[in-house]
Every structure is written in C-alpha cells, then in structure tokens.
Amino acid sequence: MTDKLREEAKRVLREGIAEMVIGWAEGSAEFKTTPFFAFTEEDCDRLVWNTACVNNLAKYLTDYPKEKKIALCVKPCDSASVNVLIAENKVLRENIYVIGLACGGVIDPIKAADAGTCELSDATAKYACLHCVHDKPEVADIVLGEAERKLTPAGEDMPPFEERRKYWEKEFDKCVRCYACRQVCPNCYCEQCFADRTDPKWTSRKPTAGESWMFHAVRVMHMAGRCVGCGECERVCPKSIPVEKLSREMAKYVKDIYDYTAGMGEKPLLGTYKDEDYDAGVHEE
C-alpha cells in the first residue's frame, strides 16, 4: 500500500497536479508516524501508510493560501474535515488533490506501545475509530487500497444524565487550558479564538473547573454540525480528558434533530434553513 501511495504521490508532483504532497512518514519511535511534506519525487519515498498514521492532516490546509495546489493524504475522517473546510470557504476544492486511503481504523500510539504491537485490534485502536463507520473517504480524487472494519463498535459512552455534572466537573478540573485540543483541530481555524479575547473577557484563563467548563462548552457549541469525530482533540490531551465525548454527543443531537452529518453536507449546518427544521429550543417539552 505504501508503494502505491508513493507512486501516486510521485505522479502528482511529476504531472504538476500539486506543488506538494502532505502525508505521513516514519516517526521518531516505533508506533509513531510524523506529518510529512513532500516537495520532490525523492521526498515521496519517505511517505508511508500504516495503522500508525493517526494525524488528521487537513489541519495543514488552512496554513497555506487557498490558491496553492496541494495534494493531501486523507483517511475517511480527514476527508470529512476537508469537506467542512470546503463548505466554509477555507479551501478551494479545485486546488486540493485528495489522495484517499481506505481505512479500517488506526492505532492509539500509547495503547499500541503498551500492547507492544501496531497490529490493529480493539485493544490498540484509537478510541474515535471505535465509533467510526466509514471505510472510504467521502471526498477524494483517488482512493487507494481496500479496507474492512473489523473493530467492535463502542456503544454509548456518555455517563447517565444525573451523573454528568459530577463527571465533567472532575474531568474539567484536570484541564490545564493548554488548548492543544483546539490547536490540533482541523476545523478550529479562527484567527482569534473567543478564549483569547480580553475585551470583553468571555472566559478567564484561570484553569479552574468552572472556567474550563465554559471553554469546553463553547468549543462544543462551535463544533455543532462541524466536528467530524476524528478524535484528534482527545488524542493530544495531556490530561486525557475525553473531550471528544462532548462533540460526539453534539453530533448525535445534530443528526437526530436536523438529519445532518458533519463533513457530508455541501453547506454548513448553521448556514442552511429548511422549512421542516425542528426548533428544539422552542418546541421541546
């Protein structure tokens, strides 16, 4: 598979389809890969595709001007992120060459290190992959390989309603407000985050449970209809706060109420209006 990927990447550069290919390369340790930017055909020989390719590379698209021709390697979840960026005017579809990779799930590097294997299994898989149902990228110019989902789907993981307050208070108390979850998110591209604003100060930077609660609550609201569930936020959290759980709950509401899945629509959820739209705030008893 890696060979096919390298071949395709070389072709893309050779034929001038893109100026660079963003993919993954061997990392500093076993169980790890690193984001890699290939500018020449020789560079392309360092690209890899395996179960350790966890990073959602769509993050890098917003670092470049829209006019730049970029080829991007994506897993199904990453491709949904690309779709969100297209719908939100951040990326021009025609300037992005999407190399899709069929994916049956990737590993969590820490779990894999503990298990001592990169072999994908329920024990080594990235937690978000246990909630994923896709094996092919939604947006892609080419799809390489074939994949089968063999992981056992994880069920409902939000604590029962009565216990949630306690649960999240404990979790948010751990938060050090490093904002890694925000920084790694491909769809968190605001030039100035509300959390960094000082006039007025919507949330203080004090890492107390209350202030962190405010930050995460607003972040999940901002992710309504936009979070594709790639799980990067949860992976990078140094305090292992399961932040993805919040977005997943939000995605469930969005699906139930508006029948919308982030990264699958042509327009952003909040930018569209249908007559039959259900107004949860007004009608819910």
């Binding site: 939100e88 005017n89 951040k90 605001c190 030039e191 100035q192 952003p268 930018g271």
Partner: peptide
C-alpha cells in the same frame, strides 16, 4: 483583523 472568512454570516 480576526475574521476567518468562513462565510457563516453571509449565509
């Protein structure tokens, strides 16, 4: 200065 041109306000 801080607008990210996501276009939500437009829609």
């Amino acid at each position: 200065n801080s607008c990210a041109a996501c276009g939500l306000c437009v829609s």
